[in-house]
C-alpha cells in the first residue's frame, strides 16, 4: 500500500490544540490505510517503505492523535491541554484513569506535567474522567522511578 501525501491533516492540530501553523509546516503528512504519518525530511521516491516519519493520527469515527507525535508538537499546544501534578502524572503514565475536573473540551487532549508532554489522553468532560491513551509499550512499571 502506498503512502499518499495529504497535508490537510495539519488543520486538525491547529483547530483542536491551537498548535501554530509554522510548527506544523515543518511536517508533510502521509496517509496509508487508517494511519497518518508526519515526516520532516526531504521527499524521497523509494520503494518498499515500512515506516514514514512518525505516526501522527489514526483515522476512525474521529481522528485520534498519537502520543508519539503529541510528545513532539504538544509543547506548542494552547488549548485542550491538561496539566497534572507529579502523582497524577505517574498514574497517567502507568495507564490509569483519573478523576479530574479541568477546563478543557471533551475529547482528545494533550497531557502534560510541567515541561514534560506525557502524551495523549481522552477527557470525558461530563464525568470528569481522564482516560490514559499511553500505548502499553511506553507505560511505566510499578518499580520504575
Amino acid at each position: 500500500m502506498q503512502f499518499l501525501q495529504n497535508n490537510s491533516y495539519r488543520i486538525y492540530f491547529i483547530e483542536r490544540f491551537g498548535i501554530p501553523e509554522y510548527v506544523l509546516n515543518t511536517y508533510t503528512f502521509w496517509e496509508r490505510g487508517r494511519k497518518v504519518w508526519a515526516f520532516s525530511g526531504e521527499l524521497w521516491d523509494i520503494n518498499g517503505v515500512e515506516v514514514f516519519g512518525i505516526k501522527a493520527l489514526t483515522k476512525g469515527r474521529d481522528l485520534k492523535p498519537s502520543t508519539a507525535f503529541l510528545r513532539i508538537v504538544g509543547k506548542y499546544a494552547k488549548k485542550n491541554v491538561i496539566f497534572l501534578d507529579d502523582n497524577n502524572a505517574l498514574a497517567f503514565l502507568r495507564g490509569r484513569e483519573l478523576n479530574i475536573d479541568y477546563p478543557a473540551d471533551g475529547g482528545y487532549v494533550v497531557v502534560r506535567r510541567k515541561d514534560d508532554v506525557l502524551g495523549c489522553g481522552f477527557y470525558v468532560k461530563k464525568e470528569k474522567r481522564l482516560i490514559s491513551l499511553i500505548p502499553s509499550k511506553y507505560r511505566l512499571q510499578e518499580t520504575w522511578v
Binding site: 508526519a38 525530511g41 524521497w44 523509494i46 517503505v49 514514514f52
Partner: peptide, 9 residues
C-alpha cells in the same frame, strides 16, 4: 521523536 527517517525492509 525522530521524524526524518524512512524505514525500509
Amino acid at each position: 521523536g525522530i521524524t526524518n527517517i524512512i524505514v525500509t525492509k
